[in-house]
Nucleic acid binder design. Structure first.
Length: 499
DNA sequence: ATAGGGTTAG
């Protein structure tokens, strides 16, 4: 009965069950109490869940785990962690839940660390553990760790299934190894639409639109029905590959052939695809033809394209919509002020700046990670307290001197703060990917490739910085941002400056 | 039977 309440999200019925337990002194019925804990947690009633937990006579591991899972689902990591550490005999479910929770909170390094603690305590990982670990590794872009995880799974004879297989495909793709990703994919015994999506997503990260279409056709031939998600991955791949015609074709086929009405996300992909290709008015009329309200992301995507292709008027229109939809998104105003500045419209710049000052600018902090000798190092933009800073600082200076000699001029247009030029230049030189690249340069041998994973899209300045470092230091530099891969070699990038 | 897992525009 409790479980039925839980399914129906019926708190009042659940409360009646709770009362029944109390009236009849059933606190010893642990399975009923566990069900009530889950029911309350599902409805967001954390205090009620705790109340019955505290009164339970026979707390089992399921009771403890139910609390942990409940806190994680409600975004309360602190309480989840407290229960996890207080729990007398944590089991696999507890550990897996915590590792998964850290991944969910974007605490990838911490997730890997928790897995290492688990190993040192002699706990045996299973496939669910490895899904969490693989996912964390992918976000960190740690290729050596990825290879280790893959062989660990084989060595420990952890039976892989569709979830783990998909997670591994995604992990290798994010680590910049599409070959390994496809090897894992090809070995999978069963592949559902999510597995195919991961493979197509791997092609998207690689900017390989043509191969993405081939994979999609193969998927259809195998009789797998596409869903909305696979079209997101496919359209993204076409966008990165600059395949506009194919993009339109796929977009139209969604409804015409597969009977899937395009959602906001799909329109977003198309706006991005058209915008990147410089077809700004085409993108704008697509937005105006949308059957649903365009959201802030759609307009943001158009705005970003306007910055690249220098269209001030459409940019202003997009920015206006965004401030209507989400007045808190100050990053947009910064972007707009930069667009005005590059067009020499200083009055407008001043207006936006004033507006920004009143609001106060907030931006997600940039963070980059790089793996050196199996150890993962994380850098945050402008982090002066990093323990490696004493080594990084002089290296950055040396790099800058060397790059200036071959014509590097810092591009200040995208620095998001209203400070003087010198200050801007300083902040720009402290972008997290620059710190990571400098550190990797001093920590790895001559000619060794450098791999960096970053949580935001790489900025123009860091992009040209990486190109020049690859040339000046004869190093292959691979940066995976939240969008795609950039392979820098001898002064050129695999994205062809199209991102 | 009450607890843990993969893919998704910017």
């Amino acid at each position: 009965m409790v479980s039925a309440c839980s399914e129906l999200d019926d708190v009042s019925c659940g409360k009646w069950c709770h009362g029944y337990v109390l009236r009849n002194g059933l606190e010893g019925w642990d399975n009923v109490c566990n069900a009530i804990i889950n029911m309350y947690m599902k409805c967001g009633k954390q205090e009620m869940a705790c109340r019955i937990f505290d009164r339970m006579l026979n707390k089992t591991r399921v009771s403890w785990n139910s609390l942990i899972v409940g806190f994680v689902r409600n975004g309360d990591m602190e309480s989840a962690w407290k229960i996890f550490t207080a729990m007398p005999d944590s089991d696999l479910v507890s550990w897996n839940t915590m590792i998964g929770a850290l991944v969910q909170e974007s605490m990838f390094k911490e997730a890997i660390e928790l897995f290492r603690v688990m190993q040192s305590e002699g706990k045996t990982a299973d496939k669910v553990t490895m899904v969490g670990v693989a996912s964390a590794c992918g976000y960190l872009g740690a290729l050596d760790l990825a290879k280790w995880i893959h062989s660990y799974i084989k060595k420990k004879d952890i039976h892989s299934d569709m979830h783990l297989g998909t997670a591994l495909v995604d992990m290798f793709a994010r680590c910049g190894d599409p070959q390994s990703a496809m090897q894992v994919f090809n070995k999978m015994v069963k592949r559902d639409v999510s597995a195919w999506t991961a493979a197509i997503g791997a092609m998207a990260m690689d900017g390989n639109g043509t191969r993405a279409i081939e994979l999609f056709d193969e998927m259809l031939q195998q009789g797998i029905k596409p869903d909305g998600v696979v079209f997101v991955a496919l359209l993204t791949a076409l966008s990165h590959g600059g395949l506009v015609e194919q993009g339109w074709h796929i977009f139209r086929s969604m409804k015409d052939i597969y009977g899937i009405a395009p959602q906001v996300v799909h329109y977003g992909c198309m706006v991005d695809l058209l915008g990147r290709a410089g077809l700004l008015s085409e993108a704008l009329s697509l937005i105006n033809s949308m059957p649903m309200e365009p959201n802030d992301v759609i307009w943001g995507s158009l705005l970003a394209a306007c910055r690249v292709h220098k269209n001030v008027d459409i940019a202003a229109c997009a920015a206006e919509r965004i401030s209507e939809l989400d007045p808190e998104r100050t990053g947009i105003h910064v972007l707009l002020s930069n667009i005005y500045a590059s067009a020499g419209r200083w009055d407008d710049v001043a207006k936006v700046r004033l507006h920004l000052k009143e609001k106060g600018a907030h931006k997600m902090p940039g963070s980059s990670s790089t793996e050196i000798n199996g150890k993962i190092f994380e850098f945050t933009t402008g982090d002066e307290s990093h323990p490696e800073m004493t080594h990084i600082e002089p290296m950055l200076k040396e790099i800058c001197c060397r790059l200036r000699d071959i014509g590097y001029v810092p591009d200040l247009t995208n620095v998001l703060l209203d400070v003087n030029e010198k200050e801007k230049e300083y902040l720009l030189s402290r972008h997290s990917e620059k710190l990571a690249i400098a550190f990797a340069l001093i920590s790895t041998g001559q000619g060794m490739p450098i791999r960096v994973a970053k949580n935001l899209r790489i900025c123009f300045d860091c992009h040209s910085f990486a190109k020049l470092v690859s040339k000046s230091y004869s190093r292959e530099i691979i940066v995976r941002d939240n969008n795609r891969f950039h392979f820098f070699q001898q002064g050129f990038c695999s994205c062809g400056d199209y991102w």
